[in-house]
Simulated assay, not measured.
Amino acid sequence: MPERDVPEWFARAEEAFDPIHKRVAAAIKKHDLPTQLSLAPQEAVYFFVHAMEIAYEANKAGIHANALSQTRYCIEALAIIELGMCRAKGREAILEKWLQGKASPGKIRQWLASEVWPSYGTGLWSESWEDYMAKLAGAVQPYAHYTSQLAQWQSRLHFASPGERTAYIESGPIVYDPQKATRITLYHSILNYTLGRIWLANSTATDSEFSGIVTRLGDALGKSRYLDGHQTDWDQQFWAMVWDGRTGSPHLE
């Protein structure tokens, strides 16, 4: 997109990407977990990064439904990464249950909500971290399987002109939709912001420079029109078809 059209959150996300991932990669190697549990958080980091890379390439190519499906996996890996970074009592037991197939990612998030998240503060705005994470997971939960909801990400909605309410749907093997591509990129940026916040909440080191990077990213994300200015249903902005009610056309910011 032309430089003048690049939203602030996109520029802040690029600034934050390397600092966030480098710190998380280093922190996950110092998890102080028993040997039999030690690989799980590290492998979750690998999985998270690879899933996002696959999603990024698919999204850029216009294969948005597949990109979104891959993106959903990141949420599940995020819970295991967080178990490797927090120091809350009981994390070894819940991680052991996950390895045995006795604790789902949803159960792990419930445990985190009870034992870890109360110390994190607010999310993107004034909502609790638990509410923020519920919206983050809920935004992509409908895409756990190939349903009609996910299939809608394979098409593009065209309006004849701004303000026009007559539209047509373009469908094909690959249909690049700039709005869908932008929203998936926004979600990736929110995921990386979440990783940065998790690191800050669990680090014993003071890193004011990094804190500033993450804070600037969060502030910029919170101003995106796609999130509608901290509406409680911001997760619905990741439905397939989203348009500006004032103009009747897709918004692209």
Rank of each mutant, 00 (worst) to 15 (best):
G248W: 08
A139V: 05
E43M: 13
G62T: 02
M85P: 00
Q152Y: 05
K60Y: 11
K29W: 14
E57P: 01
M241G: 08
A240G: 03
T122Q: 15
A93K: 15
A201V: 08
A27W: 02
E209H: 15
Y176T: 01
Y168P: 04
S224K: 00
Y176S: 00
Q149K: 12
K60H: 12
L37F: 00
A77C: 07
A16Y: 10
A103S: 06
A151M: 11
D177I: 02
A139I: 04
T206M: 05
R216Y: 07
Q237R: 13
T232F: 14
S211T: 08
G245Y: 13
A67K: 03
D207Y: 07
A26N: 15
R197G: 00
Y73H: 10
Q152I: 01
S171G: 01
L68Y: 01
P7E: 02
R23H: 10
L217R: 10
T232I: 15
A144P: 05
S119K: 14
E130D: 14
I80Y: 11
I75Y: 12
H31C: 06
G121M: 00
T232N: 15
L191Y: 01
S126N: 15
Y226C: 09
R183P: 00
S171R: 11
A51S: 13
T35C: 13
T71A: 11
Y146R: 06
S104N: 11
E170W: 07
S203Y: 03
K223S: 04
D32C: 10
A160Y: 14
I169N: 05
P173G: 02
W117L: 06
G101K: 01
L37H: 01
S161C: 12
E8T: 08
Y120P: 01
L124F: 00
G229C: 10
D244E: 02
A205H: 13
A167Q: 13
